[in-house]
Design a protein around this nucleic acid. Sequence first.
DNA 1: CCTTAAGTTGATAATGAGTCTCATTCCTGC
DNA 2: GCAGGAATGAGACTCATTATCAACTTAAGG
Lengths: 156, 156
Amino acid sequence: MTGQPRQGAEDRDFLAELHAQIGGRLAQQGHRYTSGRQELVETLVLTGQPMTLPDIVEAHPKLAQSSAYRNLDILVRCGVIRRINAGGDHAYFELAEPLLGHHHHLICISCGSIEDIHFDSEIERLVDESLNEISARTGFTPTTHSLDLHGHCADC
Amino acid sequence: MTGQPRQGAEDRDFLAELHAQIGGRLAQQGHRYTSGRQELVETLVLTGQPMTLPDIVEAHPKLAQSSAYRNLDILVRCGVIRRINAGGDHAYFELAEPLLGHHHHLICISCGSIEDIHFDSEIERLVDESLNEISARTGFTPTTHSLDLHGHCADC
DNA sequence: CCTTAAGTTGATAATGAGTCTCATTCCTGC
DNA sequence: GCAGGAATGAGACTCATTATCAACTTAAGG
């Protein structure tokens, strides 16, 4: 479901529904779902992997840098896009979890690339339990967790 | 062991041994363990929580900003200190896991504070298993994992 | 339609965390 | 002691990201 570029016929339906959902979310916050924002989202969906801003602009040169940054920020605020701080020069962006599903990342400490991975749901359940217990004990109110694996990717 | 400021008598032994270990690591890479670097380490140890560079300089105004950055970088390269990218303006620094033990973080998305937490070792074992399996399948060579909880701290 | 208000865009300027430079100072082994 | 390498600190610099602002687009009323 995740991690694959989308192009087929049923994926057009997926895109249409996604756009509808996102349009709703933006409207709730008094924002418009303009063509530039749609292209931003489609670029992320079609790539199927987290992208940096230079990645995005390169893949879609029509998007002005300043607008891309501004729109990514708005989409992040609206919960449509998630910003990933991998430690390199640039932040990475991908669809937010409500749209893409809960998952984690393989982060290469050599080349900085990021790949999505999915965990066994049993493990997720156990981790969630632990986290909830810790939250209850410390008065911390969790919204999400991130479990990322750092190392060297197959190419490095 | 972690998360508590250190001041007591047996903690002086801990510090002495720590300094010895770190000195060895630095020497291996042809670096000296100067007083500025020792103070950097002690500030982190005594605080017992991840700190940003402004935190460190405020706690120890003798340290010049440029030297602090340079020395943190060297200590990170030598595996003595770990850099945490929490997403805020500043990176956080803490003792590396070989010195502080494996642990995770509560990251407040309001005020940006970071607190150390420890997991049940059984959970850690299961997570490690999953991660190893994923690594084997994808050709990824892991060095470490990060499991952080994002949300609002008790004060926010 | 016309108007108006609000949202958006893109070029550009500004911000600021982190890095680099370099002259000076400090160590350390000989 | 002293020569050579390492470290320091002040300041200049880089560059990802944000803010600014005038021009443009859109949506809703009247």
